[in-house]
Nucleic acid binder design. Structure first.
Lengths: 337, 337
DNA sequence: CAACATTATGACACCGGTGTCAGAAAGTGG
DNA sequence: CCACTTTCTGACACCGGTGTCATAATGTTG
């Protein structure tokens, strides 16, 4: 397999390589006849431009970096799949970069990533999308980025989110309508803005249905299964025991379910359990978890697509969108006895 | 932030850019004094070589592609994490490429990936590592690749696997020693070599303990939770009902557990359940699943590391290794009543 | 048809590194 | 000290594209 370069195409087509380049990039000022001729040679020689050479000349890498620090494998793979879809559509590639939010090295780490990889842009997923420090840094460095599920209010940068507050409101309301009033809540990781939002939704639903908020019913989790297990213990030991638990994500909800089952409690007869995210585990366990489904792939897809548009044209208006989350009821929640 | 290129370093250090390049690549024939001087300038100017330019000159992309088609998110993230570790160590990047094994477009798809991304090498994870067609294609194209968990016997290509047959043997033996003899088995996806190996291990354990193999106890799954649910139904409807079920992976085992629980069966009192892989779900449910833990990260890490070595030096001997899998007992298996 | 505007094309430098090769500097032996 | 290796070093072309600009071809107008 001999290499087909822009030079061979040019020679073969009897034009200069600049003209070939013009055709390649759909630039104007090429006569239809010439364009036709060159395109034919592309086919005949089966030519594909070398992205590396292109990158060097245009100072582009055609690579988007995806930053994450998330315990949920399913969340990560959904983010990746949405990002990949957008990348492939625009002939970009995706570079994944799991790293830790905490630690002073974060900025140094990202700086190193930027200089060694020459990324054209970055997608920030929670909790990075909520890091004002990181956002300021990227702006200073003039690096293009898009925020996924970020609560930060910044009209200058791309943001795609879903309405966590509303989702939490709906699921809490669902429990209330089932007759529950003693509803425990497990918070997520404090670094994630979703944590505060889901908590707000829970509180607002209580308030709007005239149920007094009881801080003793709130446990501090961090989205991990393990933290859910700890919180579950605290909650199930309460006297009186809550008749329902709303955990800020499905892993923690699964932990509550596990402990409840170990303690011979029937779910949902003795206690209702609700989660958030609609992770695979929500339907892999019995009873299946009532939860909130967020369009994670779609959020990421839109974010990356807009990011690529912005990279291509700085004038692109800044895109900001909020997508809808949806309540999914399964067997883990039922009428309060 | 002005750009620091090899030219500025050369000028500043008072040497030619070729000499700078020599220092950069640790080439011989540079006097210690010169080397020292250049290294100092690297620090002073905070110079980082441009990987794109480097790639163009050396016809390298410094990117490894990771191919997968696997329903298990946790498997994928473990593969990615092992691959990333090796990549970062050698200043490579990882490009993820989920795609489907089936379909005639596979080869075309990969060919397109290769021409557009100029990958330096590919890691094949199951089921791609078991595709003779793909392997032949890559060899023909002279693309470097490494196989993870592949059963194909090919001394010419890098392979890192774990002993699936032995793992399945051990877990089956574990059940037999608990007094079970009526042990059902759920097979995995026919495209994965692990499927056949795990099945063999199961059969060998039965044979060595003088238990007749009964084909009626074998259900055809495909590693997905859904297929596990179907198989579970078939198995639990058997008369007599098996006293134990060994599913080829944890997702299918979880499906069996879910159905058993729905049917008011107590696990492990009424029926023991074992899985394979030690996926997170194995410990997120109650009872926790007895399973086999494979060093997926480590396998991938080694595979990618060897791949990169081979890319750097074609003379590197072909690495082949088999790592150990480990039995993990949890609450889902118990003495037969 | 002259005078000018517009479109099409190519020559050439350049992006930031690496490979080749020739020549300078340093080391060795008789 | 001279001839001969061996070790350094730099000039220069090259990787495969893109940007700039000058010039050729074509179109428009009075």
């Amino acid at each position: 397999m001999k290499k087909v370069t822009i030079n061979s195409v040019a020679t073969y087509a009897g034009v200069s390589k600049k003209t070939v380049s013009r055709v390649l990039n759909n630039e104007p000022n090429v006569s239809p006849a010439t364009r036709e001729k060159v395109l034919k040679v592309f086919k005949e020689l089966d030519y594909t431009p070398n992205p590396i050479a292109r990158g060097l000349a245009r100072n582009r890498s055609f690579i988007i970096g995806c930053l994450y620090d998330n315990p949920s494998k399913s969340y990560i793979t959904r983010v990746q799949s949405g990002a990949l879809e957008a990348c492939h559509k625009h002939h970009y590639n995706l570079l994944i970069h799991p790293c830790e939010l905490r630690g002073e090295e974060l900025i140094a780490n990202i700086e190193h990533l930027l200089t060694t990889s020459r990324l054209d842009g970055m997608v920030l997923t929670p909790p990075f999308s909520d890091s004002q420090e990181l956002i300021d840094f990227l702006k200073k460095k003039k690096v293009h980025f898009a925020r996924v599920a970020s609560a930060i209010d910044d009209a200058e940068s791309i943001s795609v989110r879903s309405n966590d507050e509303l989702g939490a409101y709906e699921i809490t309301e669902h429990l209330i309508k089932l007759g529950h009033s003693n509803i425990a809540f497990i918070k997520g990781h404090p670094d994630h803005s979703a944590t505060e939002q889901r908590f707000s939704g829970y509180q607002r639903a209580l308030a709007e249905h005239n149920i007094a908020f009881n801080p003793k019913l709130v446990a501090e989790g961090n989205f991990s299964y393990h933290s859910g297990a700890d919180s579950a213990k605290a909650i199930l030991d309460l006297d009186p025991r809550p008749s329902a638990v709303f955990a800020s994500n499905d892993y923690m909800a699964a932990a509550v379910l596990k402990l409840a089952t170990q303690r011979q409690l029937k779910v949902p007869q003795d206690i209702s359990i609700a989660g958030f995210d609609n992770a695979p585990i929500a339907r892999h366990i019995w009873p299946g978890l009532t939860t909130i489904a967020q369009p994670v792939e779609e959020m990421t897809r839109q974010a990356v697509e807009q990011l690529i548009l912005q990279i291509g044209d700085e004038q692109t208006p800044v895109y900001q969108a909020t997508l809808e989350a949806k309540l999914i009821t399964r067997e883990s929640t039922a009428q309060h006895k």
